[in-house]
Every structure is written in C-alpha cells, then in structure tokens.
Amino acid sequence: MSTPARPPGNFEITVDGEPVPARRGQSLAAALFASGRASWRRTRGDGRPRGLFCGIGVCFDCLATVNGIPNVRVCLAEAQPGDTIHTQEGTGHDARGC
C-alpha cells in the first residue's frame, strides 16, 4: 500500500450524489454513521435494510458501491477526499443483468 498524499483533516465524500463530511483517518462506514445513516444497502431477497453490524470486516453487512466498485466493505475502507458511495439494492450488480 503506497502512502497517498495526506488529505486535509475534513473533506467531503458523496453518498448517492449528496455531499457528506468525512474526517481524515475515518472509515467510510463511520462517515456514513456520523451523517445519520444507519443503512446503505438492501438485501436481494427480502429487501431488508443493512448497515454496520460487526464493524470489523467479518459480516459483510456494510457493503456499498465505492467509486464504481460494488460490494466494498465500507467498515474497512478509509475515507479519501472525493470518494463516491452509492447505496445498493440487491446484488450491487443489478444494473448489469440480462
């Protein structure tokens, strides 16, 4: 992992197009939680809301699409300035089905 240039202490990420504040060194999940969001995904079976559960990368509840990549565990991904997060419905790949 090469060390990226240090981002400033506070910056913005976007969640479904909305700006959300994030802090240097904070996980994307923490930034989402701090913005008052408790869920950012719905299951593909019953459409049940999912957010943060284990917080340490084990449960895979907290999946979201980050910078175009679906099913990222946002509890493990550190926020970077300009990160774009999209909440997920279903598999995270649903736009691609045939």
């Binding site: 279903g90 790949h93 691609r96 089905g97 045939c98």
Partner: peptide, 9 residues
Amino acid sequence: TEPLPRMIR
C-alpha cells in the same frame, strides 16, 4: 461466485 442478477442464461 457472489450472488448476481441474471447474467448467464
């Protein structure tokens, strides 16, 4: 694989 929408018929 992970679950996907219908990609392969």
